[in-house]
Design a protein around this nucleic acid. Structure first.
Length: 304
DNA sequence: TCAATTTGACCATA
DNA sequence: TATGGTCAAATTGA
Protein backbone atom coordinates (compact mmCIF):
# COMPACT_ATOMS: atom_id res chain seq x y z
CA UNK A 1 0.00 0.00 0.00
CA UNK A 2 2.74 2.36 0.96
CA UNK A 3 4.56 1.66 -2.26
CA UNK A 4 1.43 2.31 -4.24
CA UNK A 5 0.96 5.64 -2.61
CA UNK A 6 4.58 6.50 -3.15
CA UNK A 7 4.31 5.55 -6.76
CA UNK A 8 1.26 7.70 -7.06
CA UNK A 9 3.08 10.61 -5.51
CA UNK A 10 6.00 10.21 -7.88
CA UNK A 11 3.64 10.06 -10.81
CA UNK A 12 1.98 13.20 -9.53
CA UNK A 13 5.32 14.88 -9.37
CA UNK A 14 6.09 13.95 -12.96
CA UNK A 15 2.70 15.23 -13.99
CA UNK A 16 3.28 18.51 -12.27
CA UNK A 17 6.72 18.89 -13.72
CA UNK A 18 5.44 18.22 -17.19
CA UNK A 19 2.68 20.73 -16.81
CA UNK A 20 5.01 23.28 -15.36
CA UNK A 21 7.65 22.71 -17.95
CA UNK A 22 8.54 25.53 -20.27
CA UNK A 23 9.12 22.97 -22.96
CA UNK A 24 5.85 22.24 -24.75
CA UNK A 25 4.48 18.88 -23.75
CA UNK A 26 1.91 17.21 -25.91
CA UNK A 27 -1.51 16.50 -24.57
CA UNK A 28 -0.97 12.83 -25.31
CA UNK A 29 1.90 12.69 -22.87
CA UNK A 30 -0.08 14.53 -20.25
CA UNK A 31 -3.01 12.22 -20.82
CA UNK A 32 -0.77 9.21 -20.44
CA UNK A 33 0.57 10.47 -17.16
CA UNK A 34 -2.96 11.23 -16.05
CA UNK A 35 -3.89 7.66 -16.85
CA UNK A 36 -0.97 6.42 -14.82
CA UNK A 37 -2.22 8.49 -11.96
CA UNK A 38 -5.66 7.06 -12.38
CA UNK A 39 -4.27 3.53 -12.36
CA UNK A 40 -2.52 4.25 -9.11
CA UNK A 41 -5.69 5.67 -7.69
CA UNK A 42 -7.64 2.61 -8.68
CA UNK A 43 -5.00 0.28 -7.32
CA UNK A 44 -4.91 2.15 -4.04
CA UNK A 45 -8.63 2.10 -3.85
CA UNK A 46 -8.81 -1.63 -4.47
CA UNK A 47 -6.05 -2.30 -2.04
CA UNK A 48 -7.73 -0.17 0.52
CA UNK A 49 -11.05 -1.87 0.04
CA UNK A 50 -9.49 -5.27 0.45
CA UNK A 51 -7.74 -4.16 3.60
CA UNK A 52 -10.73 -2.62 5.20
CA UNK A 53 -13.62 -4.11 3.36
CA UNK A 54 -15.85 -3.59 6.29
CA UNK A 55 -15.43 0.12 5.96
CA UNK A 56 -14.79 0.97 2.38
CA UNK A 57 -16.32 0.27 -0.96
CA UNK A 58 -18.62 -2.34 0.38
CA UNK A 59 -21.80 -0.66 -0.52
CA UNK A 60 -23.57 -1.71 -3.68
CA UNK A 61 -24.87 1.80 -3.79
CA UNK A 62 -21.48 3.02 -4.79
CA UNK A 63 -20.51 2.81 -8.39
CA UNK A 64 -17.44 4.05 -10.12
CA UNK A 65 -17.77 6.83 -12.62
CA UNK A 66 -15.61 7.96 -15.46
CA UNK A 67 -15.75 11.66 -14.89
CA UNK A 68 -15.38 12.18 -11.22
CA UNK A 69 -15.38 15.92 -10.84
CA UNK A 70 -18.64 17.36 -11.81
CA UNK A 71 -17.22 20.82 -11.60
CA UNK A 72 -15.01 20.06 -14.54
CA UNK A 73 -11.79 19.30 -12.78
CA UNK A 74 -9.88 16.22 -13.75
CA UNK A 75 -9.04 13.40 -11.46
CA UNK A 76 -5.54 14.09 -10.36
CA UNK A 77 -4.78 10.66 -9.12
CA UNK A 78 -5.66 11.25 -5.55
CA UNK A 79 -8.05 8.41 -5.37
CA UNK A 80 -11.08 6.77 -6.70
CA UNK A 81 -14.24 8.72 -6.99
CA UNK A 82 -17.66 7.25 -6.93
CA UNK A 83 -21.13 8.53 -7.20
CA UNK A 84 -23.95 7.43 -5.04
CA UNK A 85 -26.48 6.04 -7.39
CA UNK A 86 -29.04 4.91 -4.90
CA UNK A 87 -29.43 5.63 -1.24
CA UNK A 88 -28.22 3.07 1.19
CA UNK A 89 -30.99 1.14 2.80
CA UNK A 90 -29.04 0.38 5.89
CA UNK A 91 -25.99 1.57 7.65
CA UNK A 92 -24.53 5.01 7.64
CA UNK A 93 -25.51 8.06 5.68
CA UNK A 94 -29.10 7.67 6.63
CA UNK A 95 -30.15 11.17 5.89
CA UNK A 96 -28.32 11.71 2.68
CA UNK A 97 -30.51 10.69 -0.18
CA UNK A 98 -29.19 13.04 -2.77
CA UNK A 99 -27.84 11.57 -5.95
CA UNK A 100 -25.71 14.64 -6.30
CA UNK A 101 -22.90 13.16 -4.31
CA UNK A 102 -19.67 11.51 -5.13
CA UNK A 103 -17.14 9.70 -3.05
CA UNK A 104 -13.41 9.76 -3.30
CA UNK A 105 -10.75 7.71 -1.64
CA UNK A 106 -7.65 9.72 -1.23
CA UNK A 107 -4.56 10.25 0.83
CA UNK A 108 -4.91 13.97 0.29
CA UNK A 109 -8.44 14.88 1.23
CA UNK A 110 -7.71 18.57 1.41
CA UNK A 111 -6.26 19.28 -1.97
CA UNK A 112 -9.40 19.85 -3.95
CA UNK A 113 -8.69 23.50 -4.44
CA UNK A 114 -11.83 24.63 -2.73
CA UNK A 115 -12.37 26.64 0.38
CA UNK A 116 -14.22 24.72 3.06
CA UNK A 117 -15.42 25.65 6.45
CA UNK A 118 -15.76 22.99 9.07
CA UNK A 119 -19.09 22.99 10.81
CA UNK A 120 -19.08 19.74 12.68
CA UNK A 121 -17.42 16.56 13.68
CA UNK A 122 -19.08 13.37 14.67
CA UNK A 123 -18.16 10.00 16.00
CA UNK A 124 -19.56 7.44 13.63
CA UNK A 125 -20.80 4.16 14.96
CA UNK A 126 -18.43 1.25 14.33
CA UNK A 127 -15.75 3.43 12.89
CA UNK A 128 -12.49 4.26 14.48
CA UNK A 129 -12.15 7.80 13.29
CA UNK A 130 -14.58 10.69 13.52
CA UNK A 131 -16.16 12.20 10.47
CA UNK A 132 -15.66 15.86 9.81
CA UNK A 133 -18.28 17.96 8.10
CA UNK A 134 -17.46 20.86 5.85
CA UNK A 135 -19.47 23.28 3.85
CA UNK A 136 -18.35 25.72 1.23
CA UNK A 137 -16.95 28.91 2.67
CA UNK A 138 -19.19 30.79 0.28
CA UNK A 139 -22.38 29.29 1.59
CA UNK A 140 -23.38 32.47 3.34
CA UNK A 141 -22.20 35.06 0.88
CA UNK A 142 -22.98 33.26 -2.35
CA UNK A 143 -25.37 30.58 -1.25
CA UNK A 144 -23.12 27.81 -2.44
CA UNK A 145 -24.56 24.50 -1.34
CA UNK A 146 -21.49 22.35 -1.78
CA UNK A 147 -20.55 20.28 1.22
CA UNK A 148 -17.95 17.73 2.02
CA UNK A 149 -17.48 14.98 4.55
CA UNK A 150 -14.07 13.62 5.41
CA UNK A 151 -13.39 10.49 7.33
CA UNK A 152 -10.20 8.61 7.77
CA UNK A 153 -10.34 4.93 6.99
CA UNK A 154 -7.90 2.32 8.12
CA UNK A 155 -4.80 2.86 10.10
CA UNK A 156 -2.25 2.41 7.40
CA UNK A 157 0.26 5.08 6.61
CA UNK A 158 -0.10 7.30 4.83
CA UNK A 159 -3.58 7.77 6.04
CA UNK A 160 -6.36 7.11 3.61
CA UNK A 161 -9.48 9.20 3.71
CA UNK A 162 -12.92 8.78 2.32
CA UNK A 163 -14.23 12.08 1.10
CA UNK A 164 -17.84 12.54 0.21
CA UNK A 165 -18.63 15.56 -1.89
CA UNK A 166 -22.24 16.63 -1.76
CA UNK A 167 -23.74 19.10 -4.14
CA UNK A 168 -22.13 21.35 -6.66
CA UNK A 169 -20.26 24.55 -6.15
CA UNK A 170 -22.28 27.49 -7.35
CA UNK A 171 -19.87 30.01 -6.00
CA UNK A 172 -17.11 31.95 -7.64
CA UNK A 173 -14.53 30.30 -5.56
CA UNK A 174 -11.54 32.19 -6.78
CA UNK A 175 -9.42 32.17 -3.74
CA UNK A 176 -6.30 34.13 -3.76
CA UNK A 177 -3.25 32.36 -2.57
CA UNK A 178 -1.87 33.91 0.52
CA UNK A 179 0.64 36.57 -0.15
CA UNK A 180 3.09 36.56 2.63
CA UNK A 181 5.87 39.02 2.83
CA UNK A 182 6.24 39.62 6.48
CA UNK A 183 9.82 39.10 7.25
CA UNK A 184 12.06 41.87 6.26
CA UNK A 185 15.24 39.97 6.77
CA UNK A 186 16.49 39.32 3.27
CA UNK A 187 18.98 36.90 4.64
CA UNK A 188 16.21 34.44 5.31
CA UNK A 189 13.83 35.36 2.63
CA UNK A 190 12.77 32.53 0.44
CA UNK A 191 10.07 32.32 -2.10
CA UNK A 192 8.70 28.96 -2.96
CA UNK A 193 7.79 28.41 -6.53
CA UNK A 194 6.24 25.27 -7.80
CA UNK A 195 4.02 24.76 -10.68
CA UNK A 196 1.20 22.38 -10.72
CA UNK A 197 -2.39 22.07 -11.61
CA UNK A 198 -3.63 22.36 -8.13
CA UNK A 199 -3.00 25.56 -6.33
CA UNK A 200 -1.58 28.96 -6.53
CA UNK A 201 -0.21 29.75 -3.14
CA UNK A 202 2.79 31.92 -2.93
CA UNK A 203 4.72 31.36 0.21
CA UNK A 204 7.50 33.43 1.45
CA UNK A 205 9.71 32.21 4.18
CA UNK A 206 10.69 32.29 6.92
CA UNK A 207 7.86 30.26 8.28
CA UNK A 208 7.32 31.31 11.86
CA UNK A 209 5.95 34.75 11.20
CA UNK A 210 4.71 34.51 7.69
CA UNK A 211 3.12 31.14 7.66
CA UNK A 212 0.94 31.91 10.58
CA UNK A 213 -0.78 34.63 8.69
CA UNK A 214 -2.25 32.29 6.21
CA UNK A 215 -5.98 32.20 6.16
CA UNK A 216 -7.23 28.90 7.41
CA UNK A 217 -10.01 28.20 5.03
CA UNK A 218 -9.44 24.54 5.50
CA UNK A 219 -6.93 23.87 8.10
CA UNK A 220 -6.13 20.39 7.04
CA UNK A 221 -8.31 18.29 9.13
CA UNK A 222 -8.56 20.51 12.06
CA UNK A 223 -8.91 17.84 14.62
CA UNK A 224 -5.39 16.92 13.75
CA UNK A 225 -4.16 20.39 14.31
CA UNK A 226 -5.80 20.99 17.60
CA UNK A 227 -4.71 19.93 21.01
CA UNK A 228 -8.19 20.30 22.33
CA UNK A 229 -9.62 17.33 20.58
CA UNK A 230 -12.29 15.15 21.79
CA UNK A 231 -11.05 12.16 23.70
CA UNK A 232 -11.98 9.95 20.85
CA UNK A 233 -9.49 11.50 18.53
CA UNK A 234 -6.63 9.15 19.01
CA UNK A 235 -3.00 9.78 18.63
CA UNK A 236 -2.90 7.71 15.49
CA UNK A 237 -4.91 10.40 13.82
CA UNK A 238 -2.06 12.77 14.14
CA UNK A 239 -0.33 11.11 11.29
CA UNK A 240 -0.62 14.36 9.48
CA UNK A 241 1.79 15.81 11.95
CA UNK A 242 4.21 13.05 11.39
CA UNK A 243 4.00 13.33 7.68
CA UNK A 244 4.55 17.01 7.86
CA UNK A 245 7.65 16.41 9.83
CA UNK A 246 9.40 16.93 6.55
CA UNK A 247 9.20 20.51 7.59
CA UNK A 248 10.53 20.12 11.02
CA UNK A 249 13.60 22.14 11.63
CA UNK A 250 16.66 20.29 10.59
CA UNK A 251 20.26 21.13 9.90
CA UNK A 252 19.33 21.78 6.32
CA UNK A 253 16.32 23.91 7.10
CA UNK A 254 18.05 26.45 9.21
CA UNK A 255 15.84 29.18 7.88
CA UNK A 256 13.31 28.39 10.54
CA UNK A 257 15.44 27.73 13.53
CA UNK A 258 12.97 28.34 16.30
CA UNK A 259 9.83 27.02 14.81
CA UNK A 260 8.13 24.05 16.29
CA UNK A 261 6.82 21.34 14.07
CA UNK A 262 3.29 22.03 15.14
CA UNK A 263 3.48 25.66 14.18
CA UNK A 264 4.73 24.70 10.80
CA UNK A 265 2.09 22.12 10.26
CA UNK A 266 -0.63 24.49 11.25
CA UNK A 267 0.59 27.13 8.91
CA UNK A 268 1.37 24.83 6.07
CA UNK A 269 -2.01 23.23 6.28
CA UNK A 270 -3.61 26.61 6.18
CA UNK A 271 -1.64 27.69 3.19
CA UNK A 272 -2.16 24.48 1.45
CA UNK A 273 -5.83 24.48 2.00
CA UNK A 274 -6.44 28.06 1.17
CA UNK A 275 -5.06 27.80 -2.28
CA UNK A 276 -7.46 28.27 -5.10
CA UNK A 277 -8.58 26.13 -7.91
CA UNK A 278 -6.67 28.03 -10.46
CA UNK A 279 -4.97 25.46 -12.64
CA UNK A 280 -1.90 27.57 -12.96
CA UNK A 281 -0.17 26.92 -9.74
CA UNK A 282 2.89 28.97 -9.14
CA UNK A 283 5.03 28.81 -6.09
CA UNK A 284 8.34 30.54 -6.29
CA UNK A 285 11.40 29.64 -4.34
CA UNK A 286 14.37 31.88 -3.95
CA UNK A 287 17.27 30.94 -1.81
CA UNK A 288 20.36 32.58 -0.60
CA UNK A 289 23.38 30.92 -1.97
CA UNK A 290 24.31 29.43 1.33
CA UNK A 291 20.82 28.52 2.41
CA UNK A 292 20.41 24.89 1.71
CA UNK A 293 16.89 23.68 1.86
CA UNK A 294 16.10 20.14 1.05
CA UNK A 295 12.61 20.45 -0.13
CA UNK A 296 10.56 17.59 -1.34
CA UNK A 297 7.17 18.69 -2.67
CA UNK A 298 5.81 15.25 -2.05
CA UNK A 299 6.87 15.30 1.53
CA UNK A 300 5.58 18.81 1.82
CA UNK A 301 2.11 18.04 0.67
CA UNK A 302 1.79 14.50 1.79
CA UNK A 303 0.46 15.32 5.21
CA UNK A 304 -2.59 13.18 5.26
C1' DT B 1 -12.64 42.70 16.72
C1' DC B 2 -13.61 39.44 13.43
C1' DA B 3 -13.54 35.04 11.45
C1' DA B 4 -12.82 30.17 11.92
C1' DT B 5 -13.04 26.10 14.76
C1' DT B 6 -14.75 23.28 18.44
C1' DT B 7 -18.18 20.79 20.55
C1' DG B 8 -22.50 19.82 23.01
C1' DA B 9 -27.18 19.72 21.89
C1' DC B 10 -30.87 19.16 18.96
C1' DC B 11 -33.24 17.40 14.84
C1' DA B 12 -34.33 14.07 11.14
C1' DT B 13 -34.40 9.61 9.44
C1' DA B 14 -34.27 4.56 9.08
C1' DT C 1 -34.78 4.48 19.43
C1' DA C 2 -30.19 4.70 17.66
C1' DT C 3 -27.47 7.10 14.72
C1' DG C 4 -26.00 10.57 11.39
C1' DG C 5 -26.24 15.45 10.21
C1' DT C 6 -26.60 20.23 11.46
C1' DC C 7 -26.89 24.18 14.46
C1' DA C 8 -25.08 27.57 17.26
C1' DA C 9 -22.78 29.23 21.46
C1' DA C 10 -18.28 29.17 23.24
C1' DT C 11 -13.62 29.28 22.31
C1' DT C 12 -9.52 30.35 19.85
C1' DG C 13 -6.35 32.84 17.12
C1' DA C 14 -4.84 36.38 13.90
Amino acid sequence: MEDLVRGQEFAKQVHLQLQGSEIPVSNEILDSVAKILECFANAISKFSSSESSSEVCHSPALTAVDSPFSDGRKLEGTGEIRTIATPKKTGSNKRRKTSDAREELTTTPFDDGRAWRKYGQKEIFNTKFPKSYFRCTHKTDQGCKAAKQVQRIGEEEPAMFRVLYIGQHTCNNQLKGPQLFLDSNPRHTCLLNFESNYYAPKVEFPFPASISSAKHEFNGDTEFASHKNRDSVKSSEFAVWNDLSAFNPSPTTSMMPSTSGSELVDGIAGLYSSADSNPNFVMDMMFDDDDVLQFDPNEFFNYS
